[in-house]
Amino acid sequence: MILSVEGLYKSFKGKPVLNDINFQLGQNEILAIIGRSGVGKTTLLRCINNLVKCDRGTIIVDGMYLCKDDNGSTTYAKPAQMLQIRKKLGLVFQNFNLFPHMSVLGNIIEAPINVFGASKSEAENKAMELLEMLDLGDKANAYPFELSGGQRQRVAIARACALNPKIMCLDEPTSALDPELREGIALIIEKLARDGMGILIITHDMNFAKRVAHRIIFMDEGRIIKESSKEEFFNNIENERIKSFVMMD
């Protein structure tokens, strides 16, 4: 397993948002986490990427403890180790959060050069390779404001891929896309998974989950209420909450 989350709890101002979350993600696997708005999906992703600290829980990223629960007291990795863990995690934000003052190429090579000490030529070669793969080769020198939503998203994916992460997390990757672009992103995600990454997708787009995921986790009110293979998930939905959510779509 490349990612495992055990007994994860998180609350905001005493209001529980994540309640005993347990799941694992394997290499080459595409896992979709679905659920209504506000059930804590983004918060879960933010915990895994250490953008917020959980109240308690254990998160193991490729064998390294990001945080470890020891009978209720949770300790986090030290900064040096955290940096190694960060390198294994890629995150594509729902609104991409590209750096507006840097070109597409600049966005991608910034962290490899300035954080991880890659040489400029090395970082640029890798970036151009990624851009070609994502069909953005001609946009290397463009600035984010000059790109369409779909192009920005692919730049965000390229930026996250530039550090060769083992896990790629995507928050609502289809919310800004038309059906054609949605298929495009599905193909990219499948390629990344084939090449070895574990992919964690957060979405309320049922059709997209159906199209791309291998496994599905359904969250409700901060809990995982169903976890199963895609086939099983869609073939027998007995839970009323899930049924109404799936039907809505």
Binding site: L83, E110, A111, V115
Partner: peptide
Amino acid sequence: GQYDAAKVLGFTPAKTFTR
């Protein structure tokens, strides 16, 4: 979101500010 993006890419607070 700019701080979040910098953080997940491993930027230190100082680098986040200057870059």
